[in-house]
Amino acid sequence: MVRAALFRLMPCFYFHIFNAKGLARDDEGRELPDLASARDEAIAGIRSILAEELRYGLIDFGGRIEVADERDRVLLEVSFAEAVELRGVGS
């Protein structure tokens, strides 16, 4: 929290998660240099969630992350399926 105050030069992005478990709003946000970094952050977050699901044998690709700005405008959507490349599935 103190950290956030030190880097006010960077925009703040909010990562709201939508999946089968419902909506997890991000009330804290994260300061990042630009939208490309925010997309990388969303993808890393999705991979972390999917990795956990994989441990228990069920992966839900139905979710998405909405990246919003400080005024709650959605700047970007990243679907869970976009975050990983699948090979050898269904062929």
Partner: peptide, 19 residues
């Protein structure tokens, strides 16, 4: 602490911590 701090304690990402 922030969710970033917690993520660094838990070996997760901030997004995953939020979830």
């Amino acid at each position: 602490l922030t969710q970033i701090d917690l993520a660094e304690c838990l070996g997760l990402t901030p997004v995953h911590v939020n979830r």
